[in-house]
Amino acid sequence: MHNKLHFIDVLGRTTGAHRKQDPDSFEYTLPAEITSIYPLTASEKLYQIQIIDPELRNRFSFKPGQFVMLELPGIGEAPFSISSSPVRRGDLELCIRAVGNFTNFLAKMERGAKVGITGPFGTHFPLEKMQGNDILLIGGGLGIVPLRSPLLAVLENRSRYGRVDIMYGAKSPMELLFTYQYEEWRRFDITLGITVDKADKGWKGRTGLITELLQERIKQTTSLRENTYAIVCGPPVMFHFVCKMLTEAGLPMQKMFVSLERRMHCGRGKCCRCNIGSTYTCLDGPVFDYWSVMNLKEAI
């Protein structure tokens, strides 16, 4: 009977292995708890989600721009960009719009509910490189969600960066996210420009496209080439126009960063669902510089 092949247990060697290389952690979900829920608009809520185990929570580290997969047993698993500051580690804030099966069920859950977290996954905005430079944060609609994490990280180290501009556009005043934080952000010597496509009765701010805001900002400086970085998040149409405008203003493509959104089933470069052309949004993205996006077929 000695020809019975020896069973090779390739698994069960977790100790010390890096999460990205460790097969055992592939399907491992960190148990987490919804610690609070703030409704932001009619359809978006800000969820504070905390990894339950304090040690794992502290060990959890991410960089602005990365995302996590959130899991609800039997309901599904879906990717969400992290909206909180990286210093909060495994005490995450996720801003989620109720739009599909998963998010609609999540919207019904209450404080104290248990969810699963895996990640963080993907690339991030290179804030280290941006130090000493001016930063343009340009967000349209839900695009403010992945912008909030780099923004908070910049605010925490405000003195390391030059001029910081936020340009944010939404369809209507009712759809503006994080309105309660605008005053706080402004206190950090930040130029915050907000515009809506369609004003309502009480709206005193500006109405129009985000590109108009950007045009004004560009006119204030002769060239963006020397010391500026831009982070652009929003619907593909928006960043197409914004990035074009920035390019014309002299900003090199490798200094512009965008965050893309695709369908994902694994987050680990295996299921192929998020591929653009043949690039994995989950591994090579979601944060790309504009040069890479230009080279991706069907990205915009």
Binding site: L72, I75, F105, K108, M109, E110, G112, A113, K114
Partner: peptide, 11 residues
């Protein structure tokens, strides 16, 4: 039969 149905804490 009369017990309230719930899933993951959602009634």
């Amino acid at each position: 039969m009369s017990e309230q149905l719930s899933y993951l804490g959602v009634p």
